[in-house]
Design a protein around this nucleic acid. Structure first.
Lengths: 385, 385
DNA sequence: CACGCGAATGTGAACGCTCACAATTCGCGG
DNA sequence: CCGCGAATTGTGAGCGTTCACATTCGCGTG
């Protein structure tokens, strides 16, 4: 087996400042891997592995990159040596050389809102499945230029691409970066080598099912409690609501604008409650829907008997509220997955066409916060024309 | 918006074999900074800046690290050159040389639960305020060894430290890593150079106020709907509940174990409802409390008239439920901040004693899901002995 | 005026890795 | 036995930074 080669190593040691001598001394077991006492308290590098395995440093590199042209025997020896030393390749060095990081940056809002959170979780999972790491930078909502700042910070970390999650329209100079960008939801203006987008609308008509559900129950129209219009997500839901009404030839009331919080739903709910005509409301998220319901209840309107309410998100507790909330459940995991796939396809294979959307992303969860409007209830459920 | 640039790339070709495409920063204005056409289609490095500014590369480094001994005039010149080139220091190179990354890794559960999410957001903010970047790896609950795996993955990214957020007890071989570790909540067994902890209990007695509140309303005892006991957080809440009962000499009922979801609260709520003695329940999170309330309502028990319920977390909608939920509000931001401070102090100044906890972290939000027990209501609010 | 000292700047060697390009080996047909 | 290509392994040059160590410069002091 190992024919002389050990002789060859001994000679060339010009550079050995840190390389102690060939110590074979004490060693401790850690979890099945032997840790050789580090020569100088340094983490082992590929050269250390190479020395121990009696091969060149390059060969170690080959083994760890799964390149061809390594005999099984050598590979074994290298892997074994690596295990003994507790070696892990140094990503920084690799990134330095390769000029890419296998890391993508996410600009997100620092919020614990259910929608954004679950999107983030899904993004992480999707990224990790494809071998990418995620860097997350949160912007502070309302701080001007914070998206650009966040993007810069990611760029200096050397991310290969940037994802703008839940982008909001900061109404500023376009964001300019030199890596591919994926925006989830409609894009604010971005200048980059590649700009990709996954639109929420791609996965179906968002609010359409909610609106049609309410109309088919006999409501004359559906009011809308919108999210902050600087969020593209809010705009999408609003538009979808409007379109659904228009295509059903129902009147389109003036939408109210909240800020995602139950407080805002509550406040606007009191306004809505003053209008006796209101029998159905679609809220842009569940939190606002809940605030809204509370306001209605407090002003003596029953839900769903007097007013029907539909939310958006299907937060975990939605089914357990009183009354259980009818709501639209988006498939954030799917959204994240498709978006990331488009981005990564583009990264490794510039110019290819974006992956199509596989399936519908929205599901209306009909529960008990919706019912026929009061003047019709006794007549049963009528149909829309 | 629109596509990025495209032309302009034509010239450089030599080096672009591995780098996807040569689509580095092209020419043009970037956010007010002039980008000189790249000499070789490469991102500018400090040497380029140095050349342009007519100084040595080292001086550029000095400027960007805010070292002393740089004349104002030179600094200006360097900064100006850097701006012109659109230079950003390369973190990978720095990390390579420094052997640290200014990056800390977080092992978290991939969940959109409110508690963990808001903790994560707080961690990110705290980290960024101190110049650290965060890498987040989610574990999959229930997958064996996933914490160790996640930690390894962070390690190979070269993080300077690891935070175990919301750790769960996987009952496995101790986690062994070679960077400092911070565990938020009680630690599973970890072997590392430094192991720090922030306990939730440090910030107050968690559930104590909730239990005392209920007892003082006249309830004989308080039942507990616990979280999954593999989570240290659940154990803390359970213990705190038990201690509070014991120190009030109230009987300690057998706790029920849920899994954080409203479903589990609902299911266990039905069990609880069978026991006519139950007049007060403390749930380990709001979601379960909501499921519980639903179950109670369905079985004809009124909340709070027949049964009082207290939750934990104070999720945004808690105040807008019917009835508004009395709950314990933890200060996750504070928790994250103190924890991170301890970690960073330790990193830059090994051996110093951990920062103390500045303030109480729990606040009982008394709302309308709690009231005196049914048999006493008419007699007004009695006092505990 | 030499000397010294501190302020300001430059030098060259790593850091751990990958890549283009040898260099070595092996099998085998001519 | 030579040679040639394919399979394997080695070599050396950086990638952009930082660091220890010069080096230069300006100027007050003996």
């Amino acid at each position: 087996m190992s024919e002389g080669r050990d002789g060859a190593v001994g000679s060339g040691e010009g550079q050995s400042r840190d390389t102690g001598a060939g110590q074979g001394a004490g060693e401790g077991m850690v979890d099945g891997m032997v840790v050789e006492p580090d020569p100088h308290g340094r983490r082992p590098g590929s050269t250390d592995v190479a020395r121990l395995a009696g091969v060149s440093q390059k060969t170690v590199s080959r083994v760890f990159n799964g390149e061809r042209y390594v005999t099984e025997e050598v590979r074994e020896r290298v892997l074994d040596a690596a295990r003994r030393l507790g070696y892990r390749p140094n990503r920084a060095a690799r990134a330095l050389k390769l000029e890419r990081n296998h890391r993508i940056g996410v600009v997100s809002l620092g919020s614990a809102l259910f929608g954004p959170s679950s999107l983030l979780v899904s993004l992480e999972r999707a990224a990790r499945n494809t071998g990418y790491a995620l860097s997350i930078v949160n912007t502070i909502e309302g701080a001007r230029g914070s998206i650009a700042e966040a993007a810069q910070s990611l760029l200096s970390e050397g991310v290969d691409a940037i994802v703008l999650s839940e982008p909001i329209d900061e109404g500023e100079a376009p964001l300019r970066v030199d890596v591919p960008v994926l925006t989830i939801g409609r894009a604010p203006s971005v200048v980059a080598p590649v700009v990709l987008t996954v639109l929420e609308e791609e996965g179906g008509d968002l609010a359409g099912s909610a609106v049609r559900h309410l109309l088919s129950l006999g409501h004359v129209t559906v009011h809308h409690l919108a999210g902050p219009q600087r969020w593209w997500a809010s705009q999408g839901r609003l538009e979808s609501w409007r379109r659904a009404l228009e295509s059903a030839r129902a009147p389109v009331p003036v939408p109210l604008e909240g800020d995602w919080t139950p407080e805002s739903g509550y406040r606007l709910g009191h306004e809505l409650a003053r209008d006796g005509e209101v029998t159905a409301v679609f809220a842009a998220n569940d939190d606002m829907a809940i605030g809204l319901i509370r306001a209605l209840v407090e002003t003596g309107r029953r839900v769903p008997d007097d007013v029907s309410v539909v939310g958006f998100d299907d937060i975990p507790v939605a089914a357990y509220l009183t009354p259980p909330l009818t709501t639209v459940r988006p498939d954030n995991a799917l959204l994240a997955e498709v978006g990331l796939r488009r981005l990564l396809d583009q990264l490794k294979n510039p110019g290819c066409s974006p992956a199509a959307f596989p399936a519908s992303m929205y599901q209306l969860m009909v529960r008990e916060s919706t019912a026929p409007p009061p003047d019709r209830r006794d007549r049963g459920v009528p149909r829309m024309a």
